[in-house]
């Protein structure tokens, strides 16, 4: 169930805010250098009638190196847009962005991410720019597929896989590139509970093994917050809250109960 869909923007004003605005990032980056950082980021689109529609409004965030942070918020609040700006796919209207390189982005729909007809060729696609020897590519591909539990599917045609399996192939492609930053857009949308857990653990283990990999994970599933080192909460194109997973979860649950009470009263 998509719990965040229960959260209505109007209920936010009814609750005492945990943090009224984004606190300064001093407490976040005290000990670690930020791998992902943006400040006063604005992004707007122009309609056919030449009207400017703001999508992101003064977004600022900072993710310390080597940590897994999650980004939550209701549908249409600008999470994916922010992630695309961080990945370099969209150009912000103004503001500053810093993301450590090399970085990798995984799309919500695996059919957009998987570009080759066979599993092994797709996982190896991202390595094409590195000009690595064949043996090294083979090792990386098999390690990445092992991490997502798909090592038996090396030569399988992609179209014969289920949605969840395709998603895991997409993640394996990102893991094989051994990036410093992973930008993950609603990875577990197509996955069942066991696959969801497998993917989270795969990402966590890749973070803990290297020590330098940082991940920003957009999600709607509150139970995933348990695995996060920290989380951001977005609303109306703004980051309204950030903190550890437990506090964000409490905040969202309070909003949900408030909304439920409003309906029942």
């Amino acid at each position: 169930m998509n719990l965040s869909s229960l959260v209505r923007p109007s209920t936010l004003s009814l609750l005492p805010p945990l943090h009224s605005t984004l606190p300064s990032r001093i407490d976040v980056t005290e000990n670690n250098a930020a791998a992902i950082e943006c400040s006063n980021l604005n992004y707007s689109i122009t309609t056919r009638l030449h009207q400017s529609v703001p999508i992101l409004k003064d977004c600022s965030l900072s993710v310390p190196s080597g940590q897994l942070w999650m980004l939550l918020g209701p549908n249409g609040c600008g999470k994916s847009t922010l992630l695309k700006i961080l990945a370099g796919l969209l150009k912000p209207t103004n503001g500053t962005v810093y993301v450590k390189r090399p970085k990798s982005y995984v799309f919500q729909n695996p059919d957009h991410q998987v570009v080759m007809p066979t599993v092994e060729a797709d996982v190896a696609f991202g390595l094409g720019k590195l000009n690595l020897p064949r043996d090294k590519v083979k090792t990386r591909v098999s390690k990445a597929l092992d991490a997502v539990g798909m090592s038996k599917y090396l030569q399988r045609p992609v179209q014969t896989l289920s949605g969840g399996q395709k998603q895991r192939i997409a993640i394996a492609g990102a893991l094989a590139e051994a990036c410093k930053v992973l930008l993950l857009d609603e990875l577990t949308t197509f996955l069942d509970e066991s696959d969801q857990l497998g993917v989270i653990k795969a990402v966590k283990s890749s973070l803990s093994n290297s020590g330098e990999v940082t991940a920003l994970w957009v999600t709607h599933r509150l139970e995933e917050l348990e695995y996060a080192d920290g989380a951001f909460y977005m609303e109306h194109g703004k980051i309204v809250l950030h903190g550890d997973g437990a506090s964000i979860m409490d905040f969202i649950r309070t909003q949900q109960s408030s909304y439920t009470n409003q309906i029942n009263s």
Partner: peptide, 28 residues
């Protein structure tokens, strides 16, 4: 829309438009 998204994915995954410099691996 699919084609656009796939082209974005290729860019994100390091393809810069030159097929000669981007190696496609066949691991068999």
């Amino acid at each position: 829309s699919h084609a656009e998204q796939i082209s974005q994915a290729m860019i994100v995954r390091g393809f810069r438009g030159d097929s000669n410099t981007h190696k496609i691996y066949s691991l068999s």
